[in-house]
Amino acid sequence: MFLRNEDFRSFIRYYPIISILIGIHILLFIMVNLFGTYSIFNLGVGSNRAIEAGQYWRLITPIFLHAGFAHVLFNSFSLYLFGPALEQMLGKVKFLIGYFGAGIIANIATFYLQDSTFSHVGASGAIFGLFGIYFYMAFYRKELIDQANSQLILMILGIGLVMTFISPNINVLGHLFGFLAGAALAPILLIGAKPYINRGMIRVRRAADTSGDIRFKPNRWQKRRIRSGSGAGSKIIWGIFIVLVALGFIVRYF
């Protein structure tokens, strides 16, 4: 579910919304930091004082902007890992409603609960909204997610919450309300949802099945069960865990 094996073109074809969002993150970061177009950043930052003055677009635009390379890397990588399954399961429209709905609710909560001098950027509230949808799924729509992926989501959510409270310059309220918003929207968004199908894996298996002369292998199912068992799942979980922890420390100390 969270193991990405698509090539670049396949990923864009299968998950166009995720691809566009990540592309916008990177494009805006390059424009601001390499080409010096700070006016874009200044016009989009979530400044509570500016929102009070009627600049309500700032409840949306911070979702696309990031404060530094580690920040945009962490959020884009998280979106790359955890966004595709939901884009396929929910469909493009519902995914956008969940993603931006959670992000906007997080920014509204930030506006009302923080003082007027507070400002922020980042897609973290929207991404925590995705975690909120998965969290709801793990407890109330178990037919949509297996136990290994449920455990992975709970582990990553725990890491995210810990990093939220120990890292400096983090919009804590944005993270928390983004998560709560995602969980609150999940019952509606998951109506009609179907379990995730890894199209990249199907493509790999089809290629493997047609590449040789021998089509039938008596022990193929036994071997497949061994490869897809708890050992393989644990390696995937710990691999993602280590990568996200490393990125978290980069955000924390650099």
Results as ranks from 00 to 15, higher is better:
Gly192Ala: 12
Val204Pro: 00
Gly248Trp: 11
Phe216Arg: 13
Tyr196Pro: 09
Arg227Ile: 11
Met201Val: 07
Phe165Gln: 03
Leu173Phe: 07
Val72Ser: 06
Met31His: 06
Phe111Ile: 07
Ser234Phe: 11
Ala184Lys: 09
Tyr38Gly: 11
Leu173Gln: 06
Ser78Asp: 00
Leu190Ile: 14
Lys194Val: 15
Leu96Ile: 15
Leu79Val: 09
Val121Trp: 12
Ile236Lys: 02
Gly233Phe: 10
Phe8Lys: 10
Gly182Met: 12
Ile237Tyr: 02
Ala232Glu: 00
Met31Lys: 08
Val93Met: 11
Leu79Arg: 03
Gln147Pro: 02
Gly122Cys: 13
Phe35Pro: 08
Ala102Phe: 02
Asp209Trp: 15
Ile188Met: 11
Phe179Ala: 01
Leu73Met: 14
Ala70Lys: 00
Ile159Asn: 01
Asn107Ser: 14
Phe254Met: 07
Gln151Arg: 14
Asp209Glu: 14
Asp115Cys: 02
Ala181Leu: 05
Phe11Ser: 09
Asn149Ala: 14
Ile30Gly: 12
Phe216Asn: 10
Ala186Glu: 05
Gly160Met: 02
Met31Asn: 13
Leu90Arg: 08
His71Cys: 01
Glu52Val: 15
Leu130Gly: 06
Gly91Gln: 04
Phe179Tyr: 02
Tyr253Phe: 12
Phe177Tyr: 11
Ala106Cys: 04
Phe35Glu: 03
Ala208His: 09
Trp238Gln: 12
Asn5Ser: 13
Ile202Trp: 01
Lys235Ser: 10
Phe177Val: 12
Ile170Tyr: 00
Ile159Asp: 02
Gly248His: 15
Ser211His: 10
Gly182Val: 10
Asn198Cys: 12
Gly178Thr: 01
Gly83Arg: 01
Pro218Gln: 14
Gly192Asn: 05
Gly103Cys: 05
Ser39Glu: 11
Val162Tyr: 10
Lys223Met: 11
Ile22Ala: 06
Leu113Pro: 01
Leu176Trp: 00
Ala126Cys: 11
Ser78Tyr: 04
Ile156Asn: 07
Arg215Asn: 10
Phe69Lys: 05
Thr117Val: 14
Gly83Cys: 09
Leu180Asn: 03
Glu143Cys: 06
Gly132Gln: 07
Ile170Lys: 14
Ile191Pro: 00
Ser124Ala: 13
Gly158Ile: 02
Ser150Gly: 12
Ala186Thr: 08
Tyr112Trp: 13
Ile250Val: 15
Lys194Asp: 06
Leu96Ala: 13
Leu81Arg: 02
Met1Asn: 06
Glu6Ile: 10
Gly125Val: 09
Ala208Phe: 15
Phe216Lys: 11
Gln88Trp: 04
Gly229Val: 12
Leu244Tyr: 12
Tyr140His: 12
Leu185Glu: 03
Ala138Tyr: 04
Ile202Ser: 09
Val162Gly: 07
Gly229Trp: 00
Leu185Thr: 09
Leu130Cys: 06
Ser116Arg: 06
Val172Met: 08
Asp146Ser: 12
Ile104Trp: 02
Ile60Pro: 00
Pro195Cys: 07
Phe100Thr: 08
Phe139Cys: 13
Pro16Thr: 13
Arg224Val: 08
Val121Arg: 05
Ala207Asp: 04
